[in-house]
Amino acid sequence: MNILIGTILIWAGAVWALARVNRDHRSELRTIWQISLDTFLFMLPRLLLGMLSAGFLALLLPEDYVQRFLGESSGLTGLLIASLFGALTPGGPFVAFAIGASAIKAGATLGAITAYVTAWCIYSILRIISYELPMLGAAFTRTRLLVSLPVPILLGLLAPVVM
């Protein structure tokens, strides 16, 4: 049911965006379909492998450990552990989100997963070394990383209050 509502909402957004493009940049519609199709085909095998892995990993993750370190009673320490794991997770979004999905199934709190995902977003090491440092410089990168330091913990603390 949840998925059905999500699907309808997303397609409503997509139709709105396509209608705007159709009005203002009609010639781009073909390009949009082509890029969308390419992206979808790129995703399909990754989504499939990621989802199946997430299902298996959820069975294998030692539930008592996940619950002890990332569960309800883990508190601030749990958020710190989750943030550290997030910062150290290599690879594309499908890897990080698949791990997040299996941790939720194994009993991690949504706060811990928020901290994990946020830290992964901010500190993706490969992206920093291969793109940010060469393109924007050390001063910029250092400043961004420093001011972002409290963000994963902060959001991890706020998330359970709102959810």
């Binding site: 949840n2 998925i3 509502i5 999500g6 997303i10 995703m43 989504l47 990621g50 989802m51 997430a54 979004p93 499908f94 989100f97 698949a98 997040g100 999905a101 939720i104 949504l110 997963i113 928020t114 995902v117 959810m163």
Partner: peptide, 10 residues
């Protein structure tokens, strides 16, 4: 990616 793997309300 995120919406595909993680629950929508999250």
């Amino acid at each position: 990616w995120e919406l595909s793997f993680l629950p929508a309300h999250f």
